[in-house]
Design a protein around this nucleic acid. Structure first.
Lengths: 207, 207
DNA sequence: TGCTAAGTGGAGACCCCCGTCCGCTTGAGG
DNA sequence: CCTCAAGCGGACGGGGGTCTCCACTTAGCA
């Protein structure tokens, strides 16, 4: 790959990251190209589809997520680990308008091995936190998804308040998650697979 | 207005309500027309813009909202009233994919008198609930917006789980809202006006 | 310095959506 | 039954999105 091409590719990625964070995934490819000072074709030569650009642009953030989970698993205090996972991932979500959508969009593509390993790790963390007596007994690992989806809804807020709103929401929720509170309705079996398998029927208007 | 025209209008409205609830506001006008068995022009003769159709289709739900708030204000137990407001409005949101967006879109048009009256009523309800000792002292009326926006995020879930997820989320949150729990970071001044005034800059690609 | 393959950008094909226009159809009063 | 305004539907204009094609430019090696 030629030197100038490599530089262009890097600039495109940086611009894409910025714009996705600022405006969400619906930012047009042409806008990214213009801001990066290249033509649309250059984008499409390096990233065959918009989705591939999205995945590449967010791969760093996904790695951070992975790291957060690993750290949490190694924390001797499982309750603290759990709190950290929720707080940090929600903060990532709140700071980056495109993060949730990118996460959802690329989740099926993430190597299922990685994905399953992470999920099982979280399940174990939840169990340890319950055993330690700090996490309420009827907390379900699926509640992580619940928190993520709810917190993702905040990305419709203007950036100035999104972070503060997310922090307050998470604080409220974490307080409920602590042991010693009353019983809840049964947990929702809310796997990410379910979230992703949304039917989008009958979009073919021409029939 | 001719009899057949009135019938068509009613059918369009019914179909629109169904489709908006099922798929959200981004359902095309053509799809509504097709399902209602009419042409696109018929839609636009009765409803000059898509937005006007949305507002009309959801006016019933908005009235329900208003009623919920009124009921809550008249409940002798302010904490119960507060719970009811949150639970019922969140349920409406969870059952209807288009509700949140329609609410946001039509909010500026709602006569500001109605809007202010409702808001002030809620603020009063919050104060009474605090005075009764059931609601935590650092709860902010703006937290209602926080709950609504977070709960609105759940509408990205498939319909089968959205309601259950919403109920669990609300149950968690209400538990935190009860008096006697620890202090939280300061409340977010999260008015609906702020939510609505989202900048959508630089969308004019042609420059 | 000259050659060539890699790289480039913009025009445009294709699709989807909102909203309009216009020639045809039909309800219903006389 | 006849008339005609009210009603109708589909074609179409305009705009914005993704992605492709192709004639031109340039980096970098000999």
């Amino acid at each position: 790959m030629r030197a100038d091409a490599r530089e262009n590719r890097a600039r495109v990625l940086a611009v894409a990251r910025d714009l996705f964070a600022e405006r969400g995934l619906e930012v047009p490819m042409a806008a990214i190209a213009r801001r990066a000072g290249v033509g649309v074709a250059t984008l499409y030569r390096r990233f065959p589809t918009k989705e591939s650009l999205v995945v590449e642009a967010f791969s760093e953030q996904f790695a951070v997520c992975q790291g957060v989970m690993d750290d949490a698993l190694q924390d001797p205090d499982p309750w603290l680990g759990l709190r950290m996972v929720i707080e940090k991932v929600c903060l990532l979500q709140a700071c980056d308008r495109g993060f949730t959508a990118a996460f959802m969009a690329s989740f099926p593509d993430l190597h299922s091995e990685v994905r399953d390993r992470t999920w099982l790790g979280f399940v174990a963390l939840v169990q340890r936190a319950k055993d330690s007596g700090h996490l309420r007994a009827d907390f379900s690992p699926h509640d992580l998804t619940l928190v993520l989806v709810a917190n993702g809804g905040l990305s419709s807020l203007p950036a100035e308040v999104a972070v503060a709103a997310s922090q307050r929401l998470v604080a409220y929720l974490l307080e409920s998650f602590r042991a010693g509170t009353d019983a809840l309705p049964p947990p929702v079996p809310l796997s990410l697979d379910l979230v992703l398998g949304q039917a989008v029927p009958d979009n073919s208007v021409g029939r």
